[in-house]
């Protein structure tokens, strides 16, 4: 597939968001695998304490130190990291302020809990800060990771999450946290970062995707692609589909077919098949409407099939292949 144009060359941070239940983590994992093809090194990061990456890769829990979780075709590798706010805070405090025992005192006074759970935005600042650090990390004059894929919070919270640093810049008019926040903000708003949205062809996820595209754009964050997940292949052709939707399929023909296949054409079987055909047609009609709504949004659209057996590790590589073939990575 070397001839396919890569749509996101030059992008170093791929943020993947989507409504809950759309398969955001699966898509982020498949994208990381696809980006790691041919000898690349890609970091896959999660920030919601859900251990979603470990589940998708069927691997032991992912920790606060990046470790390799999968090999990509052609010698590349995917590393995984679960960022945790408390650890990020302590690390941050050590790194920037050389505090030594102050860290323990902070913890004892409840300041760590305060900062990571109660204080507005601090948690998100720490999480995005760690991602920022990974994107920018260099060793021997070159970047450690060719790309970073962030399995981000869901669409409903993504703008607030990514823009938390801009908010902090507003709150903290001076101080070191302001500098950190400014640096993160400029990375997220640079051509090195894009936000991909995962959707499925149902009303609410599509609506949220539309809202997400609008809100991200308004916040000055670059929208990448829209990944339509769980797409089903139509089993019936267009003409039959339309007849099925109207309940106008040829019943005698169905009966004759069942007979020819050696099945007994009981009313329950015939009616059941017709009901299913009608529901399938209704479903596809709905999906077509929702797909048209997504097309109208503007961003490039990628499709991933629904795997009847569910997504296992093999399925993940298959999805990565599909993303690669469509030019997403």
């Amino acid at each position: 597939m070397g001839s396919v144009e890569r749509h996101w060359d030059g992008v170093r941070l791929h943020v993947v968001t989507g409504k809950g239940g759309t398969g955001k983590t699966t898509v982020a994992a498949a994208l990381a695998l696809a980006l790691a093809r041919d000898g690349k090194k890609v970091l896959l990061v999660e920030v919601e304490d859900r251990q979603g990456i470990a589940q998708v890769f069927d691997a032991p829990p992912v920790g606060y130190v990046a470790h390799k979780i999968a090999n990509a075709p052609g010698g590349g590798s995917v590393l995984a990291l679960a960022v945790e706010a408390k650890a990020a805070l302590l690390e941050y405090v050590q790194l920037f302020y050389k505090l030594g025992r102050a860290a323990a005192v902070l913890e004892r006074f409840g300041a760590v809990d305060f900062a990571t759970t109660i204080a507005p935005g601090i948690r998100d600042v720490l999480l995005t800060g760690k991602v920022y650090e990974a994107v920018r990390r260099r060793e021997g004059g070159r970047y450690v990771y060719d790309a970073v894929v962030l399995d981000a919070p869901p669409t409903g919270r993504i703008v607030r999450f990514l823009n938390v640093n801009a908010e902090v810049v507003g709150l903290a008019r001076v101080g070191p946290i302001r500098h950190q926040a400014q640096a993160i903000t400029s990375l997220l708003h640079s051509p090195q970062s894009v936000v991909h949205l995962v959707s499925v062809l149902e009303e609410m996820p599509v609506q949220e995707t539309a809202d997400g595209v609008r809100d991200l754009t308004a916040a000055g964050l670059a929208v990448g692609g829209i990944v339509v997940n769980l797409v089903r292949e139509p089993v019936l052709g267009a003409r039959r589909l339309s007849a099925a939707g109207k309940g106008a399929l040829d019943v005698d023909e169905v009966r004759a077919g069942l007979g020819a296949a050696g099945l007994s054409a009981t009313p329950a079987l015939v009616d059941g098949l017709l009901v299913q055909a009608r529901e399938h047609a209704d479903r596809l009609a709905l999906e077509r409407r929702e797909r048209a709504a997504l097309d109208a949004l503007g961003p490039v659209i990628y499709e991933l099939p629904a795997l009847v057996a569910g997504v296992d590790l093999g399925g993940l590589y298959l999805l990565a292949d599909r993303l690669h073939a469509q030019g997403m990575a």
Binding site: V235, L236, G237, R240, L249, D250, E253, V254, A256, G257, L258, A260, A261, G262, L263, T266, A268, L269, D271, G272, L273, L274, V275, Q276, A277, E279
Partner: peptide, 29 residues
């Protein structure tokens, strides 16, 4: 499912029809 038939039997029947190139509608259903 709305129809009383196992996945295996349905697939086998669909394949039979496909082999004989007849009743494509039933095979798809």
């Amino acid at each position: 499912v709305a129809a009383p038939l196992s996945a295996e039997r349905a697939l086998a029947a669909a394949e039979t029809l496909a082999e004989h190139k007849e009743h494509p509608l039933t095979a798809q259903l």
